[in-house]
Design a protein around this nucleic acid. Structure first.
Lengths: 93, 93
DNA sequence: ATATTTGGTTTATTCTGTAAACTAGTTTAT
DNA sequence: ATAAACTAGTTTACAGAATAAACCAAATAT
């Protein structure tokens, strides 16, 4: 049986990725709201996804405040697809 | 968004439960083979599932050797179903 | 007798997840 | 002008979880 990608098999990271799957660039605060994570946890998990090149993180400023946005990469999209396939076959759904 | 049951959202335990979903009593060695886990890890995770009453563990002897068998409880079945529903809605599948 | 195998369990270590604490700056009120 | 409060995150310390190595008790093989 194929193994579940451990980077995706974690609730917050899976929430992030599946949220990003349906949109383009998303702001940090939007993800905060969508996932109801704490800022610290969100920051840590985003960095892990970035390190793996599953997402891209872009930092800029908006109204003088720092602004962090992210979006999924092609690799991220592929890995999510593959993760879903593995799950489906495991769970027979 | 509903939270994923953390007891089920772990690869080995999910493998165990989804394997048990399709059969009745299963022997320890059968699970070992089906999941390719180590014996130690399998033993620990089975006990966690038992503690939560997701599975039942029955110990006996067969050919003079100790024999451990398990099967899913109704609670286990319900929780798996609920976990799958949550996943589906998260992943939009 | 003693070595090996079976069928596990315990435990020690490592890895992960998380929230609290912190950084760095901005806005607002006084 | 200064202090207080707020924005937008990041770092890190701790707790809990996962895992494999070491262990155990009994059976069988040599």
């Amino acid at each position: 049986m194929k193994k579940l990608n451990p980077l995706l098999h974690q609730e917050l990271r899976l929430s992030i990725i599946s949220f990003l799957a349906n949109v383009e660039w998303v702001e940090f605060n939007k993800l905060l709201e969508a996932t109801s994570a704490s800022k610290g946890n969100l920051s840590v998990q985003l960095k892990k996804l970035e390190t793996a090149d599953y997402i891209e993180i872009e930092k800029s400023f908006k109204n003088n405040y720092p602004l962090t946005r992210c979006r999924m990469t092609e690799l991220g999209r592929d890995e999510l697809e593959s993760y879903i396939q593995t799950l489906k076959s495991m769970l027979d759904i």
